[in-house]
Design a protein around this nucleic acid. Structure first.
Length: 299
DNA sequence: CCATAATCCTGTACGC
DNA sequence: TGCGTACAGGATTATG
């Protein structure tokens, strides 16, 4: 599942391979993959035609390409989305789940492949950032895609106001994992990195945010950021093959996960079997020894 | 302000 | 073997 590290890997690949190139034509193979696009697939194609990509930017799990006329090509990968930069004949690309094909003037292609179709592409307007600072990682432009203007900065954004985030978390009357997953509070964190960061900071997912000291809240955020930084370092190794795969495969999943998906297996710190709970209509994995359940939380 | 549920979708895993 | 069901999940929207 693409969370922040995977999307950052994609962004770097796009920045490396796509900037300065011109769009020739766009084919949308599945209308649903451009849902929300004003004017549908036809307008998407029309607004892309002839444009040059000038920057690749990311905030949280949202990634966008800036174009020479100021429009933005926004991508959200959802659960299974991939952006592939390929040569003219797309050799090696499985066409089964190909949703959008953008052919460049030089014959290369930017392909959007998405099995489960939670992801989407959209050409949209840029709106100014509220703080006048750069909109995300990858560009100094103080602009955001209009559909993502409500998304908060992420933990790898140098312009993130950490102290303000800690204060905002502690003001909220909710549980810490809910706050971590709230993309309007801090972006880029999904179920996997939330669980991993909470495990690393020995914090239970249902810990009340109002009961966190500022230091403890900072510790949780530091842990999540560290897990993401490590995942980023482990990913993004496949850029130089003949067919450049900008898919963000992390490599992190199988090797380094401490609790996520490891129900019943030994905690890597203390050996206690990892436990799985239903929380927010998804699974939460914890070590019952390392992550003590707060008072009043059932289970 | 905050929580919950439903919604979108398809491949995989599992029980019978 | 095959069929039905549950599950995986992020963001949005509606509703309480």
């Amino acid at each position: 599942m693409p969370e922040l590290p995977e999307v950052e890997t994609v962004r770097r690949g796009l920045a490396r391979h796509l900037l300065g190139r011109t769009v020739a034509r766009t084919v949308v193979l599945r209308e649903y993959s451009v849902r929300g696009q004003a004017g549908g697939a036809e307008e998407l194609a029309a607004r892309l035609a002839g444009r040059v990509f000038t920057a690749a930017v990311r905030r949280g799990k949202f990634c966008w390409l800036v174009m020479d006329d100021g429009q933005l090509l926004l991508a959200h990968l959802g659960m299974s989305g991939q952006l592939l930069v390929s040569g003219p004949d797309d050799a090696g690309v499985d066409p089964t789940h190909l949703r959008v094909a953008i052919t460049m003037a030089d014959g290369g292609r930017l392909l959007f492949v998405d099995q489960r179709t939670f992801g989407y592409l959209r050409v949209c307007e840029a709106v100014p950032t509220a703080d006048g600072l750069p909109g995300g990682v990858g560009s100094d432009l103080a602009a955001l895609p209009a559909p993502a203007a409500h998304i908060a900065r992420d933990l790898l954004d140098e312009h993130l106001d950490r102290a303000a985030l800690v204060a905002a978390m502690r003001r909220r009357r909710t549980e810490v994992k809910r706050a971590l997953l709230d993309q309007s509070m801090v972006s880029g964190i999904g179920n996997i990195y939330a669980d991993e960061g909470l495990w690393r900071s020995r914090t239970h997912y249902a810990h009340p945010t109002a009961g966190l000291t500022a230091a403890r809240a900072a510790t949780v955020l530091d842990a999540v950021a560290l897990v993401m930084t490590e995942a980023l370092a482990a990913g993004g190794t496949s850029f130089d093959s003949l067919y450049v795969n900008v898919n963000g495969a992390s490599g992190y999943f199988d090797r380094s996960l401490a609790v996520y998906g490891r129900c019943g297996q030994a905690c890597r710190r203390c050996g206690t079997p990892v436990r799985r709970d239903a929380f927010m209509n998804r699974s939460s994995f914890t070590c019952p020894t390392c992550q003590r359940r707060p008072r009043g939380v059932p289970g």
